[in-house]
């Protein structure tokens, strides 16, 4: 998570002084941010920043430029900045993406037109400030599906052996980094916040189809609830949004089919 504003009284300045000169080969772009400061604003508002960006910059670099040199009060999460930790999920030009994985060159307007990059917080979770949302409802749903190994009986004296084929069965859903891109892209989650959401189902899938795990029945029962997998309307927004390329809708479908045909 990023640090909060160093000097809230002089909000117009960044924490690292004046903006450095534009690098060679850079392009003027407008970054349009959806901002909200609960201490000042009664409603969220749009704010635009005109900065210079290299085509090889990531969107996260633009946010850093704004925070460090233009407006130090800009608030957003980021940690590793390399698409591993999943902190900087945000809505970039209308779709959920990780800011550290989107390049400016992929957002440039067609020849001769000025580029505007729109950034909003992910949808469906309460906004604390600017691009920073409260992840608690998302993480509560994750915890509710028991995302840990459940076994009964005696502990084996060695490792729990698994064949390559059995490991392959749930390989796709092990890739989740809990960034919330999928859950906050889901129209059902926007209107029904009680829906477990794609991320929780993906993480349940990871254990339901693990040959070493014995808690599949418990998890299937949890997901058979009114707010479980049957809420899924197969819009495929989650599959499109996942920065790890997980076939999210397919995972949800496999849990649905396990509920219908496996028991």
């Amino acid at each position: 998570m990023t640090a909060v504003a160093e000097n809230p009284t002089t909000s117009a300045s960044g924490s690292r002084g004046e903006l450095p000169p534009a690098p060679e080969g850079s392009i003027a772009v407008t970054v349009k941010l959806h901002r909200f400061n609960p201490e000042v604003d009664s409603e969220p508002r749009w704010e635009s920043f005109d900065i210079h960006a290299l085509p090889t910059d990531r969107v996260l670099n633009l946010l850093h430029t704004i925070k460090w040199y233009v407006d130090g009060t800009l608030t957003f999460r980021r940690s590793c900045a390399h698409g591993v930790c999943g902190s900087d999920a945000m809505r970039i030009n209308g779709v959920n993406r990780l800011a550290c994985k989107v390049l400016v060159k992929d957002l440039l307007a067609s020849k001769g037109k000025h580029t505007t990059i729109t950034i909003e917080p992910i949808k469906g979770l309460p906004v604390n400030k600017d691009l920073l949302v409260n992840m608690d409802p998302f993480l509560d749903a994750f915890k509710a599906v028991k995302p840990f190994l459940i076994t009964y009986g005696n502990e084996p004296t060695q490792e729990r052996i698994q064949s390559a084929a059995d490991r392959e069965r749930f390989d796709d859903t092990t890739k989740c980094i809990l960034c919330a891109c999928c859950t906050t892209s889901c129209p059902v989650f926007w209107t029904e916040g009680t829906y477990f959401g794609p991320a929780a189902i993906v993480n349940a899938h990871r254990f339901i189809f693990d040959s070493r795990d014995e808690g599949a029945e418990e998890r299937l029962d949890i997901l058979n609830d009114v707010d479980g997998v049957w809420r899924c309307r197969t819009t495929f927004n989650c599959t499109d949004a996942c920065p790890r390329g997980i076939q999210v809708t397919k995972a949800i479908q496999e849990v649905k089919r396990a509920l219908l045909f496996r028991r």
């Binding site: 959806h34 969220p44 749009w46 209308g94 779709v95 129209p187 819009t235 495929f236 927004n237 499109d240």
Partner: peptide, 14 residues
């Protein structure tokens, strides 16, 4: 633009 945010540019499936 309305403060509620823009339309989500979802998948064709949406």
């Amino acid at each position: 633009v309305a403060s509620g945010g823009k339309l989500y540019r979802g998948d064709l499936g949406m």
